[in-house]
Design a protein around this nucleic acid. Structure first.
Lengths: 139, 139
DNA sequence: AAAAAGCCGACCAAAATACTTGGATATGAT
DNA sequence: ATCATATCCAAGTATTTTGGTCGGCTTTTT
């Protein structure tokens, strides 16, 4: 993230949210081709293609192939949260493995590990923010 | 972090907090040699040496050289927050560069970037948690 | 003097990141 | 039909980060 910095987010999450926000802005106007999104947001089209493939497999967007095709949000913007997008692209939210949302992999002394409770608080704090913001909120 | 997952923390932050907590537990009992800390927490001693060097340069710990030497917290546990430790080891807290705590590097259209405000909320949420927990709280 | 410790700088393998490349396939417009 | 516009898919790859290792020097106590 910020460059050797804390609590990083990779370009997957950043670009992915930008793309989804772009689709939200065009919601209801038919399919939006990927090169439009890529250009508007200064993202490599081929790279974005990989990210949107993940979003499609997560059923957050649907695609229309062929000329005049593109991508469309699969649900209204009010029903898609930032958390949905980030989890799809970057996996379960957790600052350290032992407090992974989905499959926490406990270390040997999880019950006595004090630092673990710190990371759990960070995770809860982050998820609360991410799950509380929808694409509609951003419009 | 969790392995390809969101909002990662590297071993620097994890090991660093464990080491600092260990020192907090031994606060007032004289210097603690690094190999003790490394063994108790299952961390490579040579690797931990690199991390504690950073903590020393940040004035969070002080060292005592020679036999019977080791490391000591430089301030009482109540005055050291998890945020202090994480910032020392992993740099300023921010999910993306443009909301970096210290030197935000604004993108071309920062004032119009909606996603930026999302990351700023995440950052604020994380820093609030990290800055609110002291080593004393963990004891 | 010997042992116990910290200090320092270089090196390195594996993984992740952030792409690029090159095509195959589907579909609408002409 | 055919062409342009798109998505879909699979590899490859350069760079950076991560998570160390190694070897030796210096300081201080015993």
């Amino acid at each position: 993230m910020i460059w050797g910095d804390t609590v990083k987010l990779s370009t997957k999450g950043r670009y992915g949210l930008k793309a989804m926000f772009d689709l939200a802005q065009n919601y209801g106007s038919g399919p939006v081709p990927l090169n439009n999104i890529a250009q508007r947001n200064s993202i490599s089209e081929h790279y974005l293609e990989q990210l949107i493939a993940v979003l499609r497999k997560s059923n957050l967007v649907k695609s229309v192939r062929g000329a005049q095709g593109g991508y469309i949000l699969n649900r209204p913007p009010a029903t898609i949260t930032v958390g949905d997008i980030i989890r799809a692209l970057e996996g379960p939210i957790a600052p350290v493995e032992c407090v992974n949302e989905e499959e926490p992999e406990p270390c040997d002394n999880a019950e006595f590990c004090i630092t673990r409770t710190v990371w759990a608080k960070v995770r809860d704090s982050v998820t609360e923010v991410l799950d509380s913001i929808t694409l509609q909120d951003m419009l």
